[in-house]
């Protein structure tokens, strides 16, 4: 649906993007992940034809963004970063403008307005002036204007930034439900969000793509064996000796003097049950035993810092 090929963008002499390529398939929800100033917004602005790239090209549903910008824009619903809105307008007046500017005829407009206000739960606030709405409501107005005209592609730039936890959950739910019948590209630097919402993740750092895959595959690709954290009541060193004899355990390292240790297990072996049995039989007070999963945070930090070291 969206194909980004070798994008390079310079702001004056500053390079914001270098050779960025990725694609988003029809119906996919893709998370565009990166630290601040990594080039996420720049990429999204280029895809939505807000500005042209220095080099490279963007195809949206087969249309070249630089050759047919109006066609591409009509296929995309875009929520810009920080949700800029015409604050002096009422919700319904603004959405009506969005509908009209997107080329909906008069008859379709009223119906479409009702539809998006229903989805974004704005109906009872439709006569409020946007400037007087709370941040969460404004975010919904932003999403509502993107949804108008039912574009197949939605591009959302940091859709949950600045919201309180309850609002964040709500917007995420909304995005999840939209993901069922839309192609969505959303940028974020909040990792759990991406993991919850997206089928696939594109990680960008310093203007370059560093990884593209599903969150689980990325985690699996991480180097190093799976780890288990074990905590016993007392006498950590002798407990660690006991554990190191369990088949499948590669190494044990003490994390503190209290008896907490990190156990590296060879891939494919699940030694947790055996460890627990031996510790209990050996008379240790087993307080905690959990496997430490590789999170998207780990992958992200790993990729981003690795990138820093090589460059």
């Amino acid at each position: 649906m969206i194909q980004v090929e070798n994008l390079t963008k310079y702001y004056g002499l500053t390079r914001a993007l270098e050779d960025v390529s990725f694609s988003v398939g029809a119906g996919e929800v893709v998370g565009f992940l990166g630290p601040n100033a990594a080039g996420k917004t720049t990429t999204l602005k280029i895809i939505t034809c807000f500005m042209p790239p220095t080099r490279g090209k963007v195809l949206v549903d087969g249309n070249d963004a630089s050759m047919a910008p109006l066609k591409v824009r009509s296929l995309i619903g875009y929520l810009p970063e920080n949700v800029p809105l015409y604050r002096e307008m009422t919700v319904s007046a603004f959405l009506r403008f969005a509908a009209e500017v997107k080329g909906l005829d008069r008859a379709a407009r009223a119906k479409e307005l009702d539809r998006v206000m229903e989805i974004c739960r704005l109906t009872e606030r439709k006569n409020s002036i946007i400037a007087r709405l709370s941040k969460g409501f404004r975010q919904r107005v932003g999403i509502a204007q993107a949804l108008i005209g039912d574009p197949r592609i939605l591009i959302l730039d940091e859709p949950t930034i600045g919201l309180d936890p309850a609002q964040t959950v709500e917007i995420r739910k909304l995005i999840l439900s939209l993901g069922e019948d839309h192609t969505i590209l959303l940028s974020s630097h909040i990792l759990p969000e991406v993991k919850k919402v997206c089928d696939r993740v594109v990680i960008i750092n310093k203007g370059r793509i560093v990884a593209t895959d599903t969150a689980d595959n990325l985690a699996a690709r991480m180097k190093g064996a799976p780890k288990v954290i074990v905590k016993v009541g007392k006498d950590g060193p002798s407990a660690s000796r006991l554990i190191s004899e369990v088949p499948g355990v590669e190494s044990v390292s003490q994390l503190d003097d209290e008896g907490t240790m990190e156990v590296e297990v060879s891939r494919g072996a699940d030694a947790r049950a055996e460890m627990a049995r031996r510790l209990v039989e050996g008379g240790f007070d087993l307080k905690e035993l959990r496997s430490q999963e590789v999170t998207l945070e780990d992958v992200f930090m790993h990729l981003v810092t690795e990138e820093d070291e090589t460059s």
Binding site: K45, T48, C49, F50, L70, K71, R73, S74, I76, Y78, P80, N82, P84, L85, Y86, R87, A98, V101, K102, G103, Q145
Partner: peptide
């Protein structure tokens, strides 16, 4: 200033 250019220039109008 308000950032609404980003809306305006990403709507399908010339």
């Amino acid at each position: 200033r308000a950032g609404t250019v980003e809306l305006l220039f990403t709507y399908p109008v010339g």
